[in-house]
Write a protein that binds this DNA or RNA. Structure first.
Lengths: 336, 336
DNA sequence: ATACATTGCGCAAACGGTTGCTCTACGAGT
DNA sequence: ACTCGTAGAGCAACCGTTTGCGCAATGTAT
């Protein structure tokens, strides 16, 4: 049972009066800023603790012209596979925000529309914004820049002057493909992704890097980017089969599911007749048999990092324009 | 290109001064409350429009002791299939909130821990809370009740004195099963769900209702609740096959995917040898061939409804303790 | 013409904090 | 003993709104 509390909320004045000190003193005891005697501070803190006084963040915010909120902008319409990513990322952001006494104000964009963002900012509801990828090239960025309000993007962009936090997809893909090449696979098909997304470009580059490092020529015809719909995937898989690839690397787990289905229909067994690897080590594929080799990115850490960077910006500190986080190659049965 | 704005944000005093009126007048022009002449109001509004003045919500909130935020509590750890649901629901909540000039403060629970909720409430960050299901039976509810802060839950619970908004799962399941019975299926297997969840109980009841209405006896042995893990599902499917069912109804799409996989492995063709139906008309199953008959719930509307109810509560109005929303049976190839 | 509502508007006090400045008291350095 | 630096604490202004109340001007009924 939780304690019933019908008493009015305490204010700083109540505390001050009860203790026979001024509001100033109470405020200083709490914030730790300004000059205050040790004994007094402790007395105040003890009282506050005992009576469960919590400062009103609105009032505090008004006085400091801060909100102690950060805005997080999510795309409204996004494929299912990306949701776990967003969710984990949000968890990371939230944890970090809370640890610094911030809350997160969530909003979703309707396509390229900035209205929600503008609202948040103009209504003075947030001190900074985290933009989840896919916004990185449009009006949202422009708007935030014009308002010079601190913001970071999760995910890469080729936009200038934007603080980015992302995993190193290029290195990740390079390592994955290198490993596959080392396992004597030679014709590694690549499938999925959206060409205009920087992340796709990065991965593709990683793929090419791996081939180059290994001194093996690349076959353009086994690279199928811009293949997202099931029917397209089916065709691409078909094509890869006739091209005689020994492995298929999927750009994301949604694509992978369809690839697996398609291979299943064609009665092609994994990994005997075909190896498979995917990006994201998501729970969608988690229980698949055989288990699927994939890259793992820890979206939570990504969120944490993004939030930390944003906090630095809000505090007016310098930050790196680009923070690249690690990855992990999870080798499983599908490439055995 | 977005207009560059480096000018200081306008305050109500700026506007008042520029117009040669008092802050009061400006405030009244905006809010529409209080006595003010038509001409004056229009003059003020025109100026505001032209100079893009936006009131500081913090200050407004402080004056009214309101935050214009609502807290939305999401479970941190939830299965992937539920994410689309949460997402759509959030979209509904957000749209509605925004239309009433509220923003949403998102937080995730760590298990049964209320800390985030307590923070939100004690820090005066929200005017009300929406609890997404799975919280409906624990400390969260207790806490909110003790604070008597307005809140609603999305999803059902058998908790007392809690405002609930949910789809009518019982009716939905009843209708689905009735339709299947009408299509001459007799032994309809039920699989998945978590026994202690009220929603599972509702669905099960709907299933039973349908059988009763049709005057057909129910076979306990083809009902497999509490089956979530893949291995369990495999076994359950196996069991259902030996039991000779003509249809399998899945409690959610995650279960359904595994059921489909299992049936595929067993080379059982759908719908010829076995019919299949599922809850949720999610994109995970959206592209499946054959297309899967399922119930569709419109999570977005659910969010909208929940938010509206919460707004009523915040405004101090009476509301129904339970709002039940509709559903749709989507008949597809898997039950042809 | 007189009394009384009503309308339009402004004053100033909240709302609950923060913070620059001032004042006192005390300890140290000479 | 005198000066000075500094620590502890409080005053009061301020952050940007809202709102109860008062006051004048205008409209209306008598």
């Amino acid at each position: 049972m939780v304690e019933q509390s019908n008493e009015k909320k305490l204010t700083i004045s109540d505390v001050a009066e009860a203790l026979g000190v001024s509001k100033t003193t109470v405020s200083r005891a709490i914030s730790g800023k300004g000059r205050i005697g040790k004994a007094t501070r402790e007395r105040v803190l003890a009282y506050i603790e005992e009576h469960n006084y919590k400062p009103n963040v609105l009032a505090k915010g008004l006085a400091q012209l801060k909100t102690y909120n950060i805005g997080v902008m999510l795309p409204e319409d996004y494929t299912v596979v990306d949701l776990p990513f967003f969710q984990s990322c949000l968890v990371g952001i939230e944890e970090t925000a809370i640890s610094m006494d911030y809350d997160i104000l969530l909003t979703m964009s309707r396509g390229r529309d900035c209205a929600q963002l503008v609202r948040m900012v103009e209504n003075h509801k947030v001190d900074g914004v985290i933009l989840m990828r896919t916004f990185t090239e449009d009006a949202h960025v422009e708007y935030l820049k014009s308002q010079n309000i601190p913001f970071v993007t999760v995910g890469s962009s080729n936009y200038d002057g934007v603080i980015q936090v992302d995993n190193d997809h290029q290195a990740a893909c390079r390592e994955l493909v290198s490993i596959l090449l080392m396992k004597q696979m030679r014709r590694i098909g690549l499938i999925g992704g959206i060409e205009t997304h920087v992340v796709t470009q990065n991965r593709l580059q990683g793929y090419l890097d791996a081939y180059e490092q290994a001194g093996i020529p690349v076959s353009e015809e086994i690279i199928h980017v811009n293949v997202e719909k099931e029917i397209m995937i089916e065709r691409a898989v078909e094509k890869l089969l006739t091209e005689g690839v020994d492995c298929i690397v999927c750009m994301d787990d949604a694509v992978c599911i369809h690839v697996l289905n398609q291979l299943c229909k064609q009665k092609i067994s994994i990994p005997d007749q075909m190896k498979v690897a995917s990006f994201y080590d998501s729970s969608i594929l988690g229980n698949n048999i055989p288990s699927i080799t994939s890259l793992s990115f820890n979206a939570r850490e990504l969120g944490t990092a993004a939030c930390k960077v944003l906090m630095e910006l809000i505090d007016g500190n310098e930050v790196n324009p680009r923070t690249l986080l690690g990855y992990e190659v999870i080798l499983k049965d599908s490439t055995k």
